[in-house]
Design a binder for these strands. Structure first.
Length: 197
DNA sequence: CACAGGATCCACT
DNA sequence: GTGGATCCTGTGA
């Protein structure tokens, strides 16, 4: 079942935790490429020193984070990689969930084509934020895209109800965030080979 | 207008 | 384990 508005309008930590195990559907070349989300991080509002929207900082880049939950936030990092985020909570509250890793379920051939690396390890195709963005052709054109009503990219529940355990931990590469480094706002599926670290 | 730096990845040693 | 890539963005002059 497709995730609706209500799901995204919860706080970022709740959404981050519940997003693990959900399916990400991306339309590429007229085909539906499906992936299971295996790792997320919450960037939770104006008090979070790790967030781009810390202290409600509103700029051209962070503006989408202030939209109501359910739209896409894409930004470029290190001049190279796009990062895929999902905006959460009510309009005016700048919160988002960063999707760090996914497990491909269908459309592997398309993913391989989009990724251009020597390694043939399947895990290497989508086990990191920049990697999954490249694999699923996620770029700035999708910034602000509506996951609730759009057709190019959206989320749904996994109706096969697989067994998995969700673990929380500290977020990655946010050394600048002082005491917010310690927050256990990273969530991932225990033992899943596609988890990034 | 100029500049520093980043929610990373990959090839190489 | 490590360094280079590479460019957009935010900031301050």
């Amino acid at each position: 079942m497709r995730l609706g508005e209500d799901f995204y309008k919860q706080d970022a930590v709740t959404v981050a935790e519940n997003l693990v195990g959900k399916l990400l559907v991306r339309k590429l070349k007229g085909e539906k490429v499906e992936c299971r989300i295996v790792e997320t991080e919450a960037y939770a509002g104006p008090e979070d020193k790790a967030s781009h929207a810390y202290q409600n900082k509103k700029t051209d880049r962070t503006e989408v984070m202030f939209n109501s939950g359910g739209c896409v936030y894409v930004y470029l990092i290190y001049g190279i990689h796009n990062c895929f985020n999902i905006v959460t909570n009510e309009k005016g509250k700048p919160e988002a969930v960063f999707v760090r890793a996914v497990e491909p379920l269908s459309g592997i051939e398309i993913i391989k084509e989009k990724r251009d690396i020597k390694s043939k390890q399947v895990e290497e195709f989508t086990n990191g934020p920049g990697k999954l963005s490249q694999a699923l052709d996620i770029n700035k054109e999708l910034n602000g895209y509506d996951l609730v009503s759009g057709d190019e990219i959206y989320l749904k529940t996994d109706d096969n109800n697989p067994e998995y355990q969700v673990i929380s931990g500290k977020r990655i590469n946010i050394d600048y965030a002082e005491e917010y480094r310690e927050k256990l706002w990273r969530f991932f599926i225990k033992g899943n080979p596609f988890v990034s670290v």
